[in-house]
Design a protein around this nucleic acid. Structure first.
Lengths: 187, 187
DNA sequence: GTCTATAAACAGATAGAC
DNA sequence: GTCTATCTGTTTATAGAC
């Protein structure tokens, strides 16, 4: 396993920094100390902070969406949703981090339109996947979902975003677990 | 109606600034320009930024909780929840703002324990009120709530927090309206 | 109470040597 | 590519005159 490039190491450190502190909460200086290069070298790879953040969003988005797509669609809907929820648990509890895209949605006032669009795309991809699984759940056990699967999925995703905030605020994983439990009843 | 004191005007401007931009997104300089006094005068009233933020949380919390308590408990549960949802709508859509306590929950890494506790108290007050109304709804129409009223209330509140994020991100009120619609089915 | 003045640190960003 | 050096502007905060 060879040493990752400087560019990669910058991105690898940027993502958890945003998840923990937000757009205005980390600096090139922080990255400089973490990666071990001068801030001017970071500007070489990412001329502006907006460039860096946009790439961080794309990187994070690809990683998370790949993990979601990897959930076996042949499993019962309830099991798929449990695996989905696991994706959030560890980052919040172990790392005091929340979803990178949820955090940047809070910082939206500072971000260029390109980042806003990337965040919207990530939100919709999650909502679409959840809607698909909820529809599958309806076929398995035809009842229980409030409203259309699509609107239920959007509400569920909003609950996950808010649940991460609350879990970190109260320093307890039960708030995320409760949302997962509510999923069971919806499927 | 007499002119509010400088102290009051500082707080009155601080609250929407936090709701729009977060803890790291506004400065004493911003307030200085908005209120029309020098930054050193703001330090006279609020020696540190943490002092200012704590008072802003308490002020916001009192205002919102008073509005919630003012909702007539004799109304049908569904109507009460609709009035609750209205409290969020306008700030998000008209002002590009989200809940002050939700925003600061995203910035929790920078805040002292005193503010964390104040945020927790606000979250729990909302959840308790929602749980009370959901229980009332169960008496009126005994069915529909997923799980216990308490856990349903926490999930619903998380959905509101996440819904405000999404509504502002997508610049549409429909995402908040959908959560309100889901309430109807829960009551 | 409000101001001027200033501190000491930090931000994102750039020019140019090596 | 990475560095030194620097620019320009910002931040929170304090001392002390009025």
């Amino acid at each position: 396993m060879e040493t990752p490039s400087v560019r990669r190491r910058i991105l690898n450190h940027t993502i958890p920094l945003i998840m923990a502190r937000g757009y205005n909460g980390f600096s090139y200086r922080d990255l400089s100390e973490l990666v071990g290069v001068k801030t001017s070298s970071i500007h070489y790879y990412f001329p502006s902070k907006d460039d860096l953040v946009l790439e961080a969003v794309n990187e994070y988005s690809n990683n998370v969406l790949n993990s979601i797509q990897a959930i076996d669609a042949a499993l019962p809907a309830e099991t798929q949703l449990a695996k989905y929820a696991e994706l959030f648990d560890s980052t919040v509890i172990d790392g005091n981090q929340i979803c990178l895209c949820g955090m940047l949605a809070a910082d939206i006032g500072w971000l260029p339109e390109s980042v806003r669009l990337a965040l919207q795309t990530f939100f919709m991809a999650n909502e679409d996947w959840l809607a698909k699984v909820l529809r599958q759940g309806l076929e398995e056990r035809p009842f229980a979902v409030n409203g259309t699967p699509d609107s239920a999925a959007r509400m569920l995703y909003a609950a996950y975003q808010g649940g991460m905030l609350a879990s970190r605020l109260f320093r307890t994983e039960t708030r995320l677990k409760e949302i997962q439990a509510a999923c069971k009843i919806m499927t």
